[in-house]
Simulated assay, not measured.
Amino acid sequence: MATSTTTITTTRASTYLQQLCKHFAHKVPVEFTPDRGTITLPFGTCTLRADNTTLTMTTIAKGDDLARMEQVIGDHFARFSFRENIEVNWQKQH
């Protein structure tokens, strides 16, 4: 399994976490609270953590599916955060 993480500085971290989780919950298994969440897609998992100033998202998947996870989660995050124009930079874990 491969892992990548992004940490985003925003005062809306909990809001974005909940928006992402509620959005995906219509189609895939999701668990969340205002400060923690897990989105389980058929090709990988994303865990989310929020505090007052940061949102940390970690994707876990096999091989090439990691890039797909980064793209799917990143694209959806971009839609919800468009007013802030936040760039998502994934860092691969070795």
Results as ranks from 00 to 15, higher is better:
residue 46 C to E: 01
residue 64 D to H: 09
residue 37 G to H: 07
residue 32 F to Q: 01
residue 6 T to P: 06
residue 51 D to L: 13
residue 8 I to P: 00
residue 68 R to T: 11
residue 51 D to T: 14
residue 33 T to A: 08
residue 55 L to A: 02
residue 38 T to S: 12
residue 28 V to Y: 08
residue 80 F to R: 04
residue 69 M to F: 07
residue 76 H to M: 04
residue 47 T to W: 00
residue 42 P to K: 05
residue 55 L to G: 03
residue 27 K to L: 05
residue 22 K to P: 04
residue 39 I to Y: 08
residue 66 L to K: 05
residue 52 N to M: 15
residue 71 Q to H: 14
residue 20 L to Y: 00
residue 19 Q to W: 00
residue 37 G to V: 10
residue 3 T to M: 15
residue 18 Q to A: 06
residue 81 S to R: 01
residue 71 Q to R: 09
residue 31 E to Q: 10
residue 31 E to I: 07
residue 92 K to P: 00
residue 6 T to M: 04
residue 43 F to M: 11
residue 70 E to V: 00
residue 38 T to P: 06
residue 85 N to Y: 04
residue 14 S to L: 02
residue 67 A to F: 10
residue 58 T to I: 01
residue 70 E to C: 08
residue 47 T to R: 07
residue 7 T to H: 00
residue 9 T to L: 12
residue 91 Q to M: 12
residue 73 I to N: 06
residue 88 V to W: 00
residue 92 K to R: 12
residue 85 N to V: 04
residue 64 D to W: 03
residue 26 H to C: 05
residue 46 C to P: 03
residue 60 I to V: 14
residue 1 M to E: 06
residue 29 P to M: 03
residue 93 Q to H: 14
residue 75 D to Y: 06
residue 19 Q to K: 04
residue 87 E to D: 11
residue 45 T to N: 09
residue 36 R to E: 14
residue 18 Q to M: 13
residue 68 R to W: 00
residue 10 T to I: 10
residue 68 R to N: 09
residue 77 F to G: 05
residue 51 D to Y: 06
residue 84 E to R: 06
residue 77 F to W: 08
residue 52 N to R: 15
residue 50 A to W: 12
residue 88 V to R: 03
residue 51 D to N: 15
residue 43 F to H: 11
residue 32 F to A: 02
residue 59 T to D: 13
residue 93 Q to D: 10
residue 18 Q to F: 08
residue 91 Q to F: 01
residue 63 G to Y: 02
residue 8 I to M: 00
residue 49 R to P: 05
residue 50 A to C: 14
residue 30 V to D: 05
residue 32 F to S: 03
residue 67 A to I: 09
residue 58 T to R: 00
residue 48 L to A: 03
residue 15 T to Q: 14
residue 81 S to Q: 02
residue 4 S to N: 08
residue 59 T to N: 15
residue 26 H to N: 08
residue 39 I to K: 08
residue 44 G to K: 07
residue 83 R to G: 14
residue 16 Y to V: 09
residue 89 N to Y: 01
residue 28 V to S: 03
residue 70 E to F: 02
residue 58 T to K: 05
residue 76 H to G: 11
residue 26 H to Q: 10
residue 36 R to P: 07
residue 4 S to E: 10
residue 65 D to K: 14
residue 22 K to S: 10
residue 67 A to G: 08
residue 4 S to K: 09
residue 28 V to F: 10
residue 63 G to K: 07
residue 3 T to H: 09
residue 49 R to D: 11
residue 78 A to V: 02
